[in-house]
Design a protein around this nucleic acid. Structure first.
Lengths: 219, 219
DNA sequence: CGCTTTCGATACGACCCGTAGCGTAATGGC
DNA sequence: GCCATTACGCTACGGGTCGTATCGAAAGCG
């Protein structure tokens, strides 16, 4: 058995500062060079470590960049601004701020592209990046339900589906806006997005007039 | 002046079939190898063309893959199913079907990642891929307005902003669902998405009960 | 038949990859 | 303090891809 705690086995321990230096160097290289021109040899030089050290800890470029980018999402928090609308706007603006950084822009999409042909990499992305964001949706909904802003969950299975759906709508819209449309997700955009997400497209009338919502009741 | 039509200048014309063969070979290589392992030398061999020919027509891997992937979106059409709900569901399912193909999955995200550091590439993607999709939003809204399902446009500037917003919400949600969440955008998902997009999150009550929408009137 | 441009083929230096080997440094067990 | 064990820095290496240059042959135009 591995009764003796595995982390304290014999031998020289791995340098904790090296990990941080490598990940920081990876982000710096992403900013200057982008994904395709980034080389592991260059990252090792920037971090002040040998190339072999890098290969001992990460299987390759993909895994390294995932970990380097994942740290950017650590600061993501769900604020409590008193209303569902304000909470959504707050977290979306935080997410947009992260995606505004060049190391996130080029790194995130690149590893997602690679993950389409690599199941293990997809898992890694899901655990270290996606799931952290998804938890915010669950927290936000629970908070809104306790405020009475959202109806209580009908069935547990249906609730899970809806949470996934909302997550894809929120994160997808921000990612698409900033990376594909390549325009800023500023406050004006976020307000419009939150409005449509909450009240729907059919009800969207800036002058506040009555909508034609009733025609869409039964689908 | 270049009065004589530029396409018929003297000399041997470029093989039209070579273009098609190269783009098809690029898609085949994307399916088998993905983005990172795809090499231009391999594409040239598959297409039965010299490597130099490939470099004469495309500046590099990025531009080649953009053109190869763009052809996949040519089949995208806005169906007329009689209602806004059905039209959205139809076009979203088409979009999801394209993103289900492996050559689109790995190719599209990869060029988007590269485009974050290349303004010219971003323009190329916008013209040959994004704008074609965005036109469907404008068509769909105009059709829905003529049916009376959506209120008429308030101001031209506001209308353009809303169209861009809806586009990012629709395309972003599908892309995020299929590529990042890595789950299929099937009919059930599309129905739920369209429902929330049209009627809003606050009104989303499967049993049809009244929503708490009125609390969200003024933001 | 000339002129022009493209095509196929080959060759080339440059760069990066991922790994192996080796001597050294740092820790835990005894 | 000594030893086994593991991590580290450094160097070197074969293999692969890149992007370009060069050259003769091929295909249209007038």
């Amino acid at each position: 058995m591995q009764s003796r705690t595995r982390s304290t086995r014999a031998g020289r321990p791995r340098s904790a500062t090296a990990d941080a230096a490598i990940l920081a160097a990876t982000r710096a290289a992403l900013v200057e060079l982008g994904w395709s021109r980034l080389t592991l040899g260059d990252v090792a030089t920037r971090a002040g470590v040998a190339k072999t050290t890098l290969y001992r800890r990460w299987a390759g470029k993909n895994e390294l960049v995932v970990d380097a980018v994942a740290e950017l999402f650590d600061e993501l928090r769900l604020p409590d601004h008193g209303s569902l609308t304000a909470d959504i706007e707050g977290v979306v603006l935080q997410f947009a701020a992260i995606l505004d950084r060049p190391e996130a822009r080029s790194g995130l999409m690149a590893v997602v592209a690679e993950s389409t042909r690599d199941e293990a990499l997809r898992e890694r992305i899901r655990i270290s990046i996606v799931d952290r964001q998804k938890r915010l949706v669950l927290e936000g909904r629970a908070r809104a339900q306790s405020r009475g802003e959202l109806p209580p969950e009908p069935a547990p299975e249906e609730a899970a589906r809806t949470a996934d759906l909302i997550f894809d709508m929120v994160a997808g819209a921000v990612v698409h806006r900033t990376l594909i449309s390549a325009e800023p997700a500023d406050e004006q955009w976020v307000r419009g997005f939150t409005r449509i997400l909450l009240t729907g497209l059919a009800a969207h009338s800036p002058s506040g007039g009555p909508s034609l919502l009733e025609e869409l009741g039964g689908i």
